[in-house]
Amino acid sequence: MKCKETAVPGMILGLLFFCCLMACSQPEEPIRIGISTWAGVEPAELAARKGFYEKRGVDVEMVRFSAYKDSIEAFREAKVDADMQTFDDAIRLYAAGRKMKVVLFTDYSFGGDGIVARKGIDTVSDLKGKKVGVEIGTVSHFSLVKALDTAGLKEEDIVIASIPAWEIKGAFIKGKIDAGVTWEPYLTSAAKDGGGRVIITSRDYPKTIVTTMVMSDDMISRRPDDVQKVVAAYFDAVKFMKAHPGEAYAIMAQAEGESVEEFTAHVEGIRYIDIETNKAAFGTMQDGELFDVGRNLTDFLFEKSMIKTVPDIAGLMDGGFVNNLR
Rank of each mutant, 00 (worst) to 15 (best):
F142K: 14
A165D: 07
S140N: 12
T284W: 13
T86W: 08
L16V: 09
L144G: 01
G40R: 10
M219L: 15
L104S: 09
K174M: 12
T208N: 13
E256G: 03
V116A: 05
A39F: 01
P311N: 08
E261W: 03
V310S: 05
F240A: 11
I33N: 00
G320F: 04
T208V: 10
V134N: 03
K69Q: 08
K50T: 05
E261R: 15
D299M: 09
Q26H: 10
M11C: 09
A90L: 06
R326F: 02
R118M: 12
L104H: 11
I273T: 04
S125H: 12
N324S: 14
G319R: 10
R76Q: 08
K128T: 00
L104E: 10
A23P: 04
K154H: 05
T123G: 05
K69A: 07
A23F: 13
T211H: 13
I220R: 02
D88F: 02
I72E: 05
T188V: 06
K242A: 11
F87K: 03
R92F: 04
M22V: 14
V139I: 13
G283S: 09
V210T: 06
F110P: 01
P27T: 08
Y205G: 02
G283C: 10
E5S: 14
K146C: 00
E276A: 08
R49L: 12
G10I: 12
F105T: 03
L148V: 05
L144M: 11
D88S: 12
R223H: 10
E156W: 00
D218F: 09
D287R: 15
V8P: 00
L93G: 01
M62L: 15
K55Q: 15
D81Y: 07
S189Q: 14
L13N: 09
K239R: 15
K101I: 00
S71A: 11
L144V: 01
G269R: 04
L316T: 01
F300C: 04
